[in-house]
Design a protein around this nucleic acid. Sequence first.
DNA 1: CGATCCCGCCACATT
DNA 2: AATGTGGCGGGATCG
Length: 893
Amino acid sequence: ENIFDRSRMAPKTPIKNAPVDLSKQKGCTPERNPITPVKLTDRPQPDPWTPTANLKILVSAASPDMRDREKKKELFRPIENSEQGDTTDSLQDDMVDDSTVDEFEKQRPSRKQKSLGLLCQKFLARYPSYPLSTEKTTISLDEVASVLGVERRRIYDIVNVLESLHLVSRVAKNQYCWHGRHNLSQTLKTLQEAGELQYGELMTFPQKEQDLEYKTGEQKKETIPDTQGKPPLDFSEPDCTSASANSRKDKSLRIMSQKFVMLFLVSKTKIVTLDIAAKILIEETQDPVDHSKFKTKVRRLYDIANVLTSLDLIKKVHVTEERGRKPAFKWIGPVEFPGKMDELRGHSPTSDPLLRTQRGVCAPYQICATGKQRFTRHTSFNSVQPCEGSRRKVSSEPNSPHQERQDEYCSKIINLAAVCRQKIEEDTGNKACAKKTILTSIKNPSTTSALSLLPVPRDADFCVNPLPQAVFPVVQADVPNLSLLNGVSSQALHPSMPAASKTENGKPTLLPSQPFLCFPSSSLFMLCTSLQENSSRETLPTTGGMGNRNAEGQAAVPPPACQKRSSHECTSPSVPGDDEEPAAKKQTMERSDVPLSLVVPKKSFESPKAEPTQGSACTSAVHLEDFHLDHASPAAPEAVQKESTKTLDSQNQEKRSQNKDPDEPSPGKEHILKENTSQPFLPQYLYVQPAAGLSSFNFLFTANQTPGAISLAPSQLPSLSVPCVVVPSAALASFPVVCSPSVTGPLSPVPDASFSAAASMNFNMCSLASTAPVFIGTTSAVVTPKVTTTPLVDPQQPAHPTPHMSPVLARSCGALQLDSPVCMGHPVTLLKLQQPSSAPLTPKSIRPAHHEAFFKTPGSLGDPVAWKKNEGNQTRNASSVQRRLEISSTSPD
DNA sequence: CGATCCCGCCACATT
DNA sequence: AATGTGGCGGGATCG
């Protein structure tokens, strides 16, 4: 355009060559022209501009020209009216224009004409999408700004987003280098991987370090320290981290952009609503204050979305949820990147996944690390890319670089995951999210489950429908069982079970029966899982085979990551990929160390644990929304389980059939569930999430033994007699209580069976509720296999398990993902899970607190309701208050 | 009236 | 101190 303009302009304009006609034509008031000065240049540019005022005028004036050009381009077309404008000059004229313009319709430069999206299109039109590698195009911000007739500030908005996708890189002050889309797929791939890791897994995290390095400020708020940046940093590289990392505000816009893109890449549906994205992106804070923050975030997202839209990567759509329609964006860019996954993702079925995952995971992380390394400025990739550098890509890519930010980015990304979790929680609290979730959940029962929990409240409508129907049946059956459950629970409680300890199978015994109870009204959410890292991992491979069935692989990416994490403990930051894994493992490890950790609502305790939960929730929510995940995550774990479980599965299936709602999620889910179910899971933790806002769901999961072990409130649970209890919020009331059928019967008999039963229960729940429960079940199932199952109850020992639990869950998820497509969907979930683990990291510090909290909780638990209330309210504040109780399920080894 | 998001102040970073 | 960057949010416009 510029060119055109100039050429045209030249002739036209009286002025010299103002780049834009605009100025010339109209209006440029003399003054204005003169003003311009600044910079500019040497070149042909017009002098006139500069001043914004002038610009505006110019713009208006120019508009006509613009439009012509635009038309050419097409871009403008959409705009329609906007264009016109030729008319008059000066501002005054604008008014006139309208009248005058009749012909065109135009109205002066309407706001749209000046939209960032349009501006971006113009900007992009200036450069070739696929420039010759050899030639390098440099972009002068001033020049562009003047040519396009906008203030430089706007150009920054565009460039920052483009930079996040590596379409451009900053070379120097005011100078950017245009790369075009050559690396776009690579970048997206990297982002996807990173997204999977983060969101999917979460990271890890080392709280401690984090504190030091990054400021705690924000992070801590969340309570999710881990999630936040630190972990990444830690992982990535120590050195860098501190430095680069440092806070800085970093360009949130860049980071946000990447995160935003990651959400799309991770989501199944490829649709992300603004509010969800905003929630996820809001890293810190959660608290009340946020509102304004949320608003600001959304504003930024619009900016980003406009640019992405111009890039044809996304398009605006509306998602109508039950309530109403929400603005959302659909990813229309490439979904699969050549080569991208390959190893990483691993959707490969079976065993591969593990490998992949591990490695794959590493890669992403690495990336981050890399980024960090560079403190200074490298340009090449900012955030996400890290991977490249470190791992494969390497790249050098770019030349240059500048910007150290990447490191930060990486960390941030990590944080994002955490944030997401938190947010999710919050969201859950909030209705909107919940709704979505619910919806999604409905669609995908399993997947949603987690999410659904959150949403529950409001959506009751929705929720109800799906859930109730499906659920009820189950419940009914279950109810009777309660007694059984009790029996079971008792068993569970008594961790002593050696059998359980033995291994996965054994463990089941504990859980066996765990049925679920859903109470409407409470807001508690408890998640119990127990798992061991090892087992889970191991299982994963197997699982892969099992779970894969569906293996859609689509987005599956996440799973791998999870697995990865789980697989490795590595602390070493050096390897990116490893980082996560290690972290994850570590987390798990750590947790394991800690016998019982309670996860308190994030903030309150600050313990990381809470985070995970949230994170999971968040993720799930995200998925749901976007994708409706599948509950794949759960499935993954199952694979392992399958062995013993199969029988269970069969049972489960039956149940499922019953349970299934009309809606019924996809079969895949069922599978997953089955798998999950099959695996016994041991609830190590209890998660209580009371979302303040959420309200609707409360879940109580008992780990198998946990309850007993925990001592939580045996009385409480016991009374229930169900290992897991899900309590919907009051609002939920609609929900019936659900007891896992399987549980009832089985309990005593065979541990395995019981597990399976339990698992099934969970699944059922999920299907029914379509919400969180499912996840839980899954995770737990996954976890259980090994350690968890073991019944040990010792608090401390259990603690060990506990830690695992979260990790386990994550792992399991990862496994699931790997295996089945479903997993893919769930990736997010998984992530969340991991996060928790990460959160947990802190085991140390946390532990004590947790314990206390933990205990408390139980007490509170005594009354489910009361419990909910109390905690829910309290916790809420943090966005999600989640508490995890770890139950020691068994003593891990 | 809610969704969008332009506009530009102003703080922080870099030179 | 000047200039580059870019966070941020008021408030206008759109639908």
